[in-house]
Write a protein that binds this DNA or RNA. Structure first.
Lengths: 206, 206
DNA sequence: TCCTTTGGGCCGACCGGTCGGCCCAAAGGA
DNA sequence: TCCTTTGGGCCGACCGGTCGGCCCAAAGGA
């Protein structure tokens, strides 16, 4: 089952690769199945042999990417904690891991962000579940940090987790698109400084 | 010339309104000109009487929205400074203004974020210019704050500005989509706390 | 006062072209 | 032998854009 499926797996991989790039650039509807096939070096019929529909190909692609991302984030956090680091250090490591991921798979990130907040799309449920996976990893670390008194109890875990994820995603995309001459470290440092209170002194409303 | 153009202006407004919602929900390519016309209560031909093409309608809509947004941000900053507030307080006011804007025009924001990082789209130049407008407002305030020693000279202005804008955009969208029971103040406070160093202690890499 | 013209705005039927999906005989490959 | 891919023809729904014609308030004219 594994050896025999290798060929098929390869084809699928090539199709993911082709689709993610094209859809990131053009959007889902503007991207043709024919185009995807062509870029993957495969016949159109092959797409429909491997996936029930264009939408299914897309959904599997999303699942695939998010699984990778959460795994990386989780690993960054676990490694830090195992090495005796604090939860806050774990957050820092996750930011770096996030940036690294986006650096490696910019197209995926682009596409994820573009689709995430759309309503009325057939893959909405899939996306909501995937978003939950990503945010949950961050939430867990935040909650632990609060429990261990590394962070103030005032921290609103769900909102902060969402803000952190958003900040990293958007910063990275902006970096790729508009400031590509910057290094990953520069971006990471800017974010770390920002969170350190480098833009501190903002007051919460009464 | 003015009285007679009122009718036309109204029609255009209705078309913007209809288009922004539909495109935010479905994306540009999946949204039909017929749909837009129908939702605006107008015939398809009217769309083409008022705009050269579907794309032009979209671009004008983007321009229109971004102009509104930057005006709000600028005003928030100016008001703060005029009232004797610091640059950092101005940043805080801009965050609130951003959230308020997004709260009022969620569809526009959604659509803006979805399209911003796409390459290979005909309206790319338009979008890049518009993005620059938004970021520039924040950059100016940041630069002033550094010059006035309210912020460390270590602050990387372009990256920080992008990160701030991103954080606000994404937090707000996430709030609307996934945590709508929260109030604007809660979101604002979570962001302010985050920037205050509530998640502080992150270290910049050597 | 009544008829006629003007011209901006709008309508909606229509057309050319596109694209997702299906089909299938034949070849390739493990 | 069985799974997978090829490649390309075909269909039919759909969509952007066009265009001739309608509407009507305002101006002009006798």
């Amino acid at each position: 089952m594994d050896t025999s499926s290798t060929r098929r797996t390869t084809t699928r991989q090539k199709l993911y690769q082709a689709a993610v790039t094209l859809i990131a650039e053009q959007g889902f509807s503007s991207t043709t199945v024919e185009e995807i096939a062509e870029r993957a070096g495969v016949a159109k019929g092959t797409v429909y042999y491997n996936f029930r529909s264009k939408t299914e190909l897309f959904e599997e692609l999303l699942r695939h990417g998010v699984t990778l991302l959460t795994a990386e984030l989780q690993r960054a956090a676990d490694d830090t904690v195992e090495a005796g680091g604090s939860r806050v250090e774990a957050l820092d490591a996750m930011i770096r891991a996030g940036l690294t991921f986006i650096d490696r798979y910019p197209a995926f990130t682009q596409l994820y962000v573009a689709e995430l907040w759309r309503t009325n799309r057939s893959w909405r449920p899939t996306l909501m579940a995937l978003r939950q996976q990503v945010v949950a990893v961050v939430e867990t670390v935040l909650r632990d940090a609060v429990a261990k008194h590394e962070l103030s109890e005032d921290v609103d875990v769900p909102l902060t987790a969402a803000a952190l994820v958003g900040m990293v995603l958007v910063s990275a995309l902006d970096w790729q698109s508009f400031q590509p001459e910057r290094s990953l470290d520069e971006v990471h440092d800017a974010l770390a400084l920002l969170l350190q209170g480098g833009v501190g002194g903002l007051r919460a409303a009464g």
